[in-house]
Design a protein around this nucleic acid. Structure first.
Lengths: 259, 259
DNA sequence: TATTAAATCTCATATATTGACAATAATCGT
DNA sequence: ACGATTATTGTCAATATATGAGATTTAATA
């Protein structure tokens, strides 16, 4: 039933009952039943005389998530300050399981496309955010990523084999920041520094987004310094895990959320 | 299975497998199975060694919704302008089926609580937004709302019977704006004007949020005038419905979303 | 390495889903 | 207001899937 929700993506964000049934092969009664249930749950909403779109419950959940996100709540003042001081768009990016997603956009002086805002997912190898985050992954996890993305890694300059891939990322990890140009949106660049949670586990990053022209005029070392300063401030403010008596860990890649 | 997602609300935004199973009466295998599926779908994400929270897919959907919302995309520049000119927080509020939810917050000079931001739902009778929206509902729909909320309507000053309720809202409708003080958050007030979609169907409103002290110093007539100007600008920019051959309408309360 | 807790698997039984077809509800044009 | 048409919901037998007790596997820790 949740697969209905996957239908809603650009360019088609409104679906009719008929369209949904056709696309997913449901009979009419089944289609109407599913839609009705998702509508009652607030995941869909009726728009216009015949269409449905994603519903208000999603917006409400996102609201709850923003308020419960310790990295975001701790980081807000610093992100604002960075945007004012640098004039760049400053984004907070989080690692959610194996997804890398922007969680906050603080706008600078340039008007960048709205596509950089909260909710934008990043391909695992593209952009400064993805680079700085995976550079801090454990070896085994990196290996898995490499095996699943060999040709993309080659195309993006990570190297043509595992050793080169590993060493390329080790260099980024050592440098403590990553830069990318035009990999996500033509004409735009990013400079990213990592944010670590407890036990130095990577949980996200801060990115300065700017045009490639502006990046060419920027002293990257100073910008990185400021980003890293803010990252440190965020790290010390992230509260310790509030989860009850901690059972065995199954996965070292996690992020804290306040309970 | 979706009921698991309803567990995630303040003050508890992280749940263990054990906690979920206990709270919802699932056996362990069932609980693990559900959690696994929701995690694979991105609706949950693992945080910490034992906990789960709402996942990245929600954030991504919200992103898609923001970009596809014609009222929001048309309204952004006007909301920004209003915030600059008035110094108030200017919120866009949408009617989704029978939910009233903030869809955008444009911050003014006062730092208001983050709780006013996108995703905040409003009780059907509380606040200026709810008042101006339901004031423009058809008679039958109003009657239903009244029957379900008689005591709350009385407590909030709508009147002690259907006739008074109806006439109270008719007055708001005629005035073309609504004011509320302290109904949502102590010390805060709202001034709201309606936004109409095709065929003059109510689809949302613009609200200026400010402290009650500041409201007392404000010329409400001028503020309302500016809000109404922006509402008109938004209305003429909302594109006509893009839904395919329009079948019979089932509900006059709907909102347009671009396809 | 042994122990322990977390997570997954097996499979008989219980329960839910499904869609063809029927019925009802709602809308529109006259 | 009425009849025609479309949208939506209901019925129920056939089929599919979910469920959980108990067993097994996996993963982490001391």
């Amino acid at each position: 039933m949740l697969v209905i929700l996957e239908l809603f993506s650009p360019p088609r964000m409104v679906w009719t009952t008929e369209g949904i049934c056709e696309a997913l092969g449901y009979s009419r009664p089944t289609g109407y039943r599913y839609i009705r249930q998702l509508t009652e749950n607030g995941l869909l909403v009726r728009v216009g005389p015949a269409g449905y779109s994603l519903g208000p419950r999603i917006v409400e959940w996102d609201f709850l998530m923003r308020h419960a996100d310790p990295m975001l709540t701790a980081g807000l003042p610093f992100l604002r300050n960075l945007a004012v001081q640098t004039g760049c768009d400053i984004n907070l990016v989080a690692l959610y399981g194996d997804r890398i997603v922007t969680t906050h956009q603080e706008m600078g002086t340039e008007i960048l496309p709205l596509s950089f805002s909260r909710g934008r997912p990043f391909p695992i190898l593209r952009g400064a955010s993805s680079r700085i985050i995976i550079a801090n992954f454990p070896r085994g996890r990196l290996k898995r990523i490499y095996e699943q993305n060999e040709s993309e890694a080659l195309a993006l300059g990570y190297g043509s084999n595992w050793e080169e891939f590993k060493s390329y990322l080790a260099k980024i990890k050592r440098a403590g920041y990553a830069v990318s140009r035009g990999e996500l949106d033509a004409g735009y660049a990013g400079v990213a520094v990592p944010i670590f949670g407890p036990k130095r586990v990577i949980i996200g990053c801060i990115v300065a987004a700017l045009t490639t022209q502006r990046l060419a005029l920027t002293r990257t070392d100073m910008l990185v310094n400021m980003l890293q300063g803010a990252a440190k401030e965020i790290e010390v403010r992230i509260p310790a895990p509030q989860v009850p008596p901690v059972p065995r860990r199954r996965d070292t890649a996690y992020r804290n959320v306040a309970s």
